[in-house]
Amino acid sequence: MEALAVAAKSFVVINAVLVAFAYILLFERKILGWMQYRKGPNRVGPWGLLQPIADAVKMFLKEDIIPKDADRLVFQLAPIVSLAVALTAFAFVPIGPGLAVVKDADAGMLALMAVLSLEVYGVALGGWASQSKYALMGALRSTAQLISYELAMGMTVLAVFIMAGSTRFDAIVASQEGLWNIVRMPLAFLLFFIAMLAETARTPFDLPESESELVAGYHTEYSGMRFGMFFMAEYVNLVTATALITLLFLGGWLGPAFLPGWVWFLLKQSLVIFLFIWIRATLPRFRYDRLMAFGWKVMLPLAALNLVVYATWAALA
């Protein structure tokens, strides 16, 4: 019975997330348009509200091309892995007290991180199976980038765990009652924010799909809905990442009682998404070697320092 409930809940949440993906995309295009003196999508439906549907239809109607030399099975599997992992990771994210697919998971954040790091597989396999030099180089870059920034991310999260004394999301949010982590540990917020930009391959860390030098990076050879799945995975990851920033640093669903918790959560999350888009409109892309140097030589030491400081603080308090 419980399994059935989880399945039903998953179905609802997956659909909700995919709709959210479509409208975050629209939101992003509208905001980018606004920042760039243009209108953004405005042809399909009022204010372009039906644009995501038109995009989805287009994706499905596109020819599905598999390169001649590609490893067919892996090539077809990679986008599925990507999207499945992204959706699984989201299952652990509570958007209100107890409002998650996997309810009140012990070590919820740890489980989420474990699943998130599987994201590399979709990227690496997709790039590898395409048998294209551009895709291969894109996949290598992405793999290296994701792994390096995951280390810094893990270190920062450890500091949050120490302050909360738990790895459960509800405990982490509860520990921010009165003082959000963004105020208590600003450096950790900054590091985590940057790590999340890199994890979701957003500008200025969008090297995995750097359009200019590697055509489109690891998904160069993908077309139609297979490309669409990579794309969806990326945006589901964006939802997860912004949700994590909200949960770990912005007090999650905490807020004055005149609005329900989940509304506060979504408001904060929208703000973070807006920040991500704003950054995308403003910044160019890092060069690959600078990105790696930044990850290992700046992010990781700072994250370690951050951890030591808060561990000492927690030990003394």
Binding site: Q36, Y37, R38, T203, S210, S212, L283, P284, R285
Partner: peptide, 16 residues
């Protein structure tokens, strides 16, 4: 040039 470096906004300003 902006697009090549990965910045997407300059092209719209410049073309405007």
């Amino acid at each position: 040039g902006g697009v090549d470096v990965g910045a997407m906004t300059p092209i719209f300003l410049a073309f405007d």
